Simulated assay, not measured.
Amino acid sequence: MRRLLGVVPLVALAACTGGEATPQADPSAAPSHDHGSARVSLAVGDGTERYDVGYTLADVVLPGRVGEPGELSFRIDSFRKEAQTRFLAEQTKKMHVYVVRDDLAVFRHVHPEMDDDGTWRGTLTLPEPGDYRLVAEFVARDEGGNGDHVLLGDRVEVEGDWQPAPVPEATGEGGDWGVEADVLTQLRAGAQQQLTIRLTRPDGATPSLGQYLGTTAHLTGFHTGTGGAVHMHPLGAPGPDDRGEAPGLDLQFHAEMPEAGTYVLFLQVRVDDFLHTLPIPVEVAA
């Protein structure tokens, strides 16, 4: 039941576009991830379906109250209709969970732990009610010891009065009090590309970048129309920008956007020992 796809070697939105084009990435330079001797498939699914390639996201529960910690839980079932309990770590974690509201105005990224019976449990605080989707990203270890990289999702309503936020303008920029991000790549649907995001600090100093999940950054995007998720992996070490102006750092990612439209990229970086989550709305051309 495993599809071999080949191996690939918060909430306030910010605002103005990067627009500097960069060349398409060489597919042979796509990121590799250390899974030991296991071979891992290309990622399957975009988190909008509960089932794909033999795996099912089951029994999803989100906290029923907002503004206070609550439990999230779910299970991944295999094609044998029983809990999948063997996983490989991806960016240091065996399970990445993204909880996003339909309007993408709320985003949470958590790493639950698995019980002996295969149920994943974690703690989550949701700031507001609304229509949410839990997206589980994992690499399931199959019977041959190799990995199936899968994204599954399911919807959960958190009751209460709320109004969807408008679709953000695709400015290509995001930031907060400590770090600013500027997308320099014109992304195109269906193309493997090298995505460059420039980091700067509001005070003009060079950002002091630490590690998060064993690498320079974590980047996940969501289509504002379909809700489809895309995970983009970092490529190598960050380099200094080449503007000759205020010091900055350029982060490189392998990106392959499946369809055109507006996305919100959620960039997570550790700067000056603080984890920043930056929403960056971008437009992907056809």
Rank of each mutant, 00 (worst) to 15 (best):
residue 104 L to E: 10
residue 158 V to N: 15
residue 163 Q to L: 15
residue 212 Y to T: 11
residue 150 V to P: 01
residue 12 A to K: 15
residue 283 E to Y: 14
residue 158 V to S: 10
residue 94 K to V: 06
residue 121 R to Y: 03
residue 159 E to C: 12
residue 233 H to M: 04
residue 99 V to A: 05
residue 36 G to L: 06
residue 207 P to L: 08
residue 116 D to C: 06
residue 264 V to L: 07
residue 249 L to I: 09
residue 145 G to N: 13
residue 216 T to I: 08
residue 204 G to I: 10
residue 165 A to P: 13
residue 206 T to E: 14
residue 33 H to L: 08
residue 257 M to L: 11
residue 192 Q to M: 13
residue 266 F to N: 03
residue 136 A to K: 00
residue 164 P to M: 15
residue 145 G to C: 10
residue 153 G to V: 09
residue 65 R to L: 12
residue 180 E to M: 10
residue 140 A to N: 03
residue 230 V to A: 04
residue 141 R to Y: 01
residue 10 L to F: 13
residue 171 T to D: 06
residue 267 L to C: 08
residue 140 A to I: 01
residue 29 A to T: 15
residue 158 V to C: 07
residue 156 V to G: 04
residue 183 V to Y: 04
residue 166 P to A: 15
residue 69 P to K: 11
residue 258 P to Y: 00
residue 56 T to A: 12
residue 261 G to P: 07
residue 240 P to L: 07
residue 223 H to C: 04
residue 12 A to G: 14
residue 39 R to C: 10
residue 185 T to W: 09
residue 37 S to P: 05
residue 154 D to G: 15
residue 189 A to T: 13
residue 89 A to S: 03
residue 208 S to E: 15
residue 211 Q to V: 08
residue 19 G to M: 15
residue 41 S to R: 03
residue 77 D to Y: 00
residue 107 F to S: 08
residue 170 A to L: 07
residue 243 R to I: 03
residue 89 A to Q: 00
residue 14 A to H: 09
residue 202 P to V: 11
residue 44 V to D: 02
residue 235 L to T: 05
residue 107 F to K: 08
